[in-house]
Nucleic acid binder design. Structure first.
Length: 896
RNA sequence: GCAGGGGUUGCCAAGUCAGGUCAAAGGCGUAGGACUGAGGCUCCUAUCCCUUAGUGGGUUCGUGAGUUCAAAUCUCACCCCCUGCACCA
């Protein structure tokens, strides 16, 4: 019976945190031991850490502690990410007294006085840096803080400059032109997270067909389906819209006014020459640039001037809107008359089928409108649904008909690109970018597509770069293996990636100061900076002392140290120390992160390492990937109100329980689930383990090893093997499950043996405490201290697996014995007899084993007598006659 | 839509690659019991359904079909969930 011990977890945690810090046990310097460099992505410093951070960091910390106990020289550094837009954004919002922003900060426990100072982004960074450091320490992460930095430190900026110059010199950074979603107000690209509306929308390329009026002006018709040019029966213009005549490059176009704004941002020169109402064009004819036939310009209200050019061609066979548009006109002859168009002219128009699709009729748009019973062009919902359906179906399965000339028989999906190119080649068409859907920037402005010129890109498409990345990945360990495919497909899929922006915090591109290195691109090789950051910090090396020569020497061993030392004013010894520190620690041995970073950050990390370091020794060696952290089965989010800050969890449950519950909540790519009842259960378990040690440690007798002692040792040896194997694969949860089993086994042992073998019980408790120390280090230090140990458990030696200590025979016997106990229990239940017990066994060894257990059986079941007999001749067995049974017997259990 | 991962008995989760020993580990929860002044602790027992003298039977591993003497495990199709889809951290 173990009494619950009331433990003051907080006091224990404070005590050991302080002792660790005083003894500087996590400060790692190169020495003769083998090294182990573990790290995890640094957090963005615009708020304190949440439970998800705690999950990833604890996971790495468990591995760090494991490796340290295994005898490695372990380095776990930590830094802070501050580059990019959000921090500036917060500062700006504070400046403007934004109430939402202030509330967010107040909720996170920032005082009003502090909030006022947040107008200064640098102050804001310093503030959160302090808070985050506190959170990390509270959680018990074994960090070497001497190597800490932020990405807006000028020293770090020098490092990034070195990196980018190097990449550019090797041809991995190139200039290019690219369409982006653009906010004309912010004058910057609008990413998904920067949007009030239109998440997931992006630029899509419209083809514009140059229909011509007899007078020479061009009516550009925007469409996503170039093949439908063969099925055009007329064109549509919105009669109520005021269009403009504009000189676009060297032609006169008639387009909507909003289109001119878009074209200006898409590398066209646009001058508005005049206005023209849509209705003025109705009833005129224009020429199809491919078929060269004349088609009628008809009115339709569904034509949206905000979409592309504000002019569309009509393909009634394949576009439900167009078919309904025509029908609407036929039912409305007076409307037609207004524009001087005769009903006959319209009723003569017959759909022209362009695409043949299995399962669809000749004119699928017509059929669909009938099926959905679309009454008129105002039934937008039905029409959109039909349009969507047709677009997909015909794109994937449709085959071009005879009217398409040389392209006949081709599948739409295969021929679409070629068609577009061909039409452009003969000047029948151009293209323009349009959004796939409306996007509104966070600032409230409507966005459009802009073609960014002279943008800087990382050339991930470069085949020699990809090949190196593949090689690196092949050599890496990925935990769990299931995640590897994701890396492989990312390497194949990555193309040019913009690596610079015009706004936000960060390092300016050294050769083009207008651009700032984008934040995902300045955080891919910073782990190497940890190996020298302690020298930069302690030696107070100034940013302007750091130039490419320094970094070339430190990271590549290039150049003359003496000369660099003189020129840069850094002592030769320090430079050499930095160099050897890098050589000692790099490449890192494991980096742990959530799975969301696989397709970007982690794969970039592979690419950049292979580009910066030709020597494979410096490449990443392993990634450990974890899933997302859910809370009570739901995604953690501020709006759901289930957002848990790390500090709050630690405050409420203690760091030890928080850590071990996090580790127990998931493994591999599965999303973890944080359940309060589990955390509380762990808190109790920790207490009762403390109680277990207090009660049994060093309390038994010194005695010779009995079978049951051998059993416990054997079981523990197996556990040590299993736990070690799992931890080597970053499977922290699996390793932890054996802790439960060890507790169970120890409890069986305590019950089973009347007298406890002090050596054995101590051994078991020590092993368990060591295992526990990875997960819940504070309480483990406390327990270790209670055991009168001199050293920190954090610096103790990991229990070694020794197969020689495993006694297979005893393991088997005890297993059998447990089964026998189970049988005895059942038999007692049925026979209601428990006076005497007779056991019949086959071998003498078995007999001896059971005889040794007889006192346990008496204690456990209340037998007066327990006898074990050897079976001599089972054929003569007679269950009724005790004396015969004793003489011959049959293997089994008999009760009196 | 595309890419990667997943769906197991109340919940979490092992098992799937190497088919049988799987009614399926372990943890949590729940129920009963022990201990206790009392317990939210700890220990024992039970926990798919029916039946039973320590058994026997039935129905299960997202859905449907297939391969096989035999499928949670292999094949195919479908449904659902998670992550990512780029100039954003």
């Amino acid at each position: 019976m173990i009494k619950i011990v009331d433990l003051d977890f907080k006091a224990i945690e404070d005590k050991w945190r302080q002792k660790w810090a005083d003894a500087k046990i996590f400060e790692a310097n190169p020495d003769e031991r083998k090294k182990w460099f573990v790290n995890s992505p640094f957090p963005y410093v615009n708020s304190c850490l949440h439970l998800g951070h705690g999950f990833t960091y604890t996971r790495m910390d468990v591995i760090a502690r494991f490796k340290r106990m295994q005898g490695y020289n372990v380095l776990f550094p930590f830094a802070f990410h501050a580059t990019g837009e959000p921090i500036v954004g917060v500062a700006k919002r504070i400046e403007k007294d934004d109430s939402d922003q202030i509330k967010m900060l107040t909720d996170a426990g920032v005082s009003e006085r502090e909030i006022k100072k947040f107008k200064d982004p640098k102050y804001l960074v310093r503030y959160w840096q302090k808070r985050i450091k506190q959170d990390v320490n509270r959680l018990g992460i074994a960090v070497d803080w001497r190597r800490s930095f932020t990405t807006i430190d000028p020293e770090f900026n020098r490092f990034i400059e070195w990196q980018y110059r190097l990449l550019k010199d090797n041809g991995y950074v190139v200039q290019g032109t690219h369409p982006v979603v653009w906010c004309p107000n912010c004058k910057s690209p609008t990413g998904d997270h920067d949007r009030l509306q239109g998440g997931g929308e992006g630029p899509i390329n419209y083809i514009l067909f140059n229909f011509k009026l007899p007078s020479g002006e061009i009516l550009p018709m925007g469409t996503l389906r170039p093949e439908t040019i063969y099925g055009v029966t007329n064109v549509w213009i919105n009669p109520d819209v005021e269009y403009v005549k504009a000189k676009v490059d060297n032609e006169i176009w008639i387009i909507s006014e909003s289109c001119t704004e878009k074209l200006k941002d898409q590398m066209h020169s646009v001058q508005i020459k005049g206005k023209i109402r849509g209705e003025e064009l109705i009833g005129k004819r224009c020429i199809n640039p491919i078929l060269m036939n004349e088609v009628l310009i008809l009115p339709a209200s569904f034509v949206n001037p905000k979409s592309a050019t504000g002019l569309v061609m009509s393909v009634p066979s394949h576009a439900p809107y167009d078919w309904i548009g025509l029908k609407d006109l036929m039912y409305n002859p007076s409307f037609l008359k207004k524009y001087g168009i005769s009903l006959d002219e319209v009723s003569e128009i017959k759909p022209i089928s362009v695409v043949k699709t299995e399962g669809l009729g000749e004119h699928p748009a017509v059929d669909l409108c009938e099926k959905l019973e679309v009454k008129n062009q105002n039934e937008v919902e039905k029409l959109d649904k039909a349009t969507n359906f047709l677009y997909k179906k015909e794109f994937h399965q449709g085959i071009l008909r005879e009217v398409c000339g040389e392209h006949q028989g081709m599948r739409v999906s295969q021929v679409k690109e070629d068609l577009s190119k061909d039409f452009q080649k003969v000047n029948a068409a151009t293209t323009m970018w349009e959004l796939s859907g409306g996007v509104v920037c966070r600032c409230g402005t409507k966005c459009h597509v802009k073609i960014l010129e002279n943008q800087w890109f990382l050339k991930f498409s470069d085949e020699r770069w990809k090949e190196k990345a593949r090689l690196c990945l092949r050599r890496m360990k990925i935990y769990p293996e299931e995640a590897r495919e994701n890396f492989e497909s990312t390497i194949e899929w990555l193309q040019e990636k913009a690596c610079a922006r015009k706004s936000g915090l960060g390092t300016r591109l050294p050769w083009d100061k207008d651009w700032i290195v984008e934040t995902l691109s300045d955080s891919v090789i910073y782990m190497s900076y940890y190996t020298i950051a302690n020298y930069i910090n302690s030696e107070k090396i100034e940013p302007d002392q750091l130039n490419d020569d320094v970094f070339e020497y430190v990271f590549h061993g290039e150049g003359d140290v003496k000369k660099i030392s003189e020129e840069r004013g850094i002592s030769k010894e320090i430079l050499q120390k930095m160099r050897s520190s890098f050589e000692y620690w790099y490449g890192f041995d494991i980096r742990g992160s959530a799975k969301e970073l696989i397709p970007n950050h982690l794969t970039f990390c592979i690419f950049h390492h292979t580009a910066v370091w030709p020597n494979e020794k410096n490449w990443p060696r392993a990634f450990a990937i974890n899933g997302m952290l859910n809370v009570e089965g739901e995604k953690m989010s501020k709006s759901k109100g289930n957002f848990i800050l790390l500090k709050d969890a630690i405050e409420k449950y203690g760091a030890d329980a928080t850590r071990i519950a996090l580790m127990d909540s998931a493994e591999g790519l599965n999303d973890a689930n944080w359940l309060e009842k589990d955390v509380l259960a762990w808190k109790n378990k920790l207490s009762s383990f403390y109680g277990l040690v207090k009660r049994y440690y060093d309390k038994g007798k010194l005695m010779l090893k009995r079978p049951i002692d051998a059993w416990l040792v054997s079981r523990f040896q197996n556990y040590i093997k299993m736990i070690t194997d799992h931890l080597e694969k970053a499977e922290n949860r699996s390793a932890l499950t054996y802790f439960h089993q060890m507790v169970n086994d120890l409890q069986w042992y305590l019950k089973r043996s009347e007298e406890r073998n002090k050596t054995i019980v101590n051994y078991a408790l020590e092993v368990m405490t060591k295992v526990l120390s990875l997960y819940s280090p504070f309480i483990s230090e406390e327990i270790w201290n209670m055991m009168d140990k001199e050293r920190f458990i954090s610096l103790e030696k990991w229990p070694e697996f020794d197969p020689k200590k495993i006694d297979e025979y005893v393991l088997k016997q005890e297993e059998t014995f447990k089964n026998i106990c189970e049988d005895i229990k059942q038999t007692i239940k049925l026979s209601k007899k428990n006076k005497d017990l007779y056991l019949y066994v086959i071998t003498e060894k078995e007999m001896l084993y059971l005889q040794q257990a007889s006192s346990f059986l008496k204690r456990e079941f209340g037998f007066k007598e327990v006898k074990v007999f050897l079976v001599r001749d089972s054929k003569k067995y007679d269950p009724q006659n005790k004396s015969i049974r004793a003489k011959y017997g049959k293997p089994g259990i008999y009760l009196e």
